[in-house]
């Protein structure tokens, strides 16, 4: 379990994981309300886990970008793009 604090780093590592193992990598967004509202992003391929936590509303923009990238990567026939 790796808790990544820096978003850019997190995004890069996510891409790398997806490139290595596109069919097994899954991506989850958890919205929790306790103790405080927060979004927890988790990426895993069953051996590596990347986690990013935020309680900032502005991070929704980043999550949107990541979600778009992941959707594209997951529906692509070939290897995910850079």
């Amino acid at each position: 379990m790796v808790e990544v604090k820096n978003w850019d780093e997190f995004f890069e590592q996510t891409k790398e994981l997806m490139r290595q193992n596109p069919s097994r990598t899954r991506y989850s967004i958890k919205y929790k309300t306790k103790p405080g509202a927060a979004l927890v992003i988790k990426i895993t391929d069953n051996s590596t886990v990347l986690k990013f936590t935020t309680s900032e509303r502005s991070d929704l923009k980043r999550i949107e970008e990541l979600t778009g990238w992941m959707l594209a990567a997951m529906t692509e026939q070939e290897q995910p793009h850079a």
Partner: peptide, 13 residues
């Protein structure tokens, strides 16, 4: 789920 449960959204190929 507001204030009571977490909600997970998961994407996979």
């Amino acid at each position: 789920s507001r204030d009571t449960h977490s909600v997970w959204v998961t994407l996979k190929r």
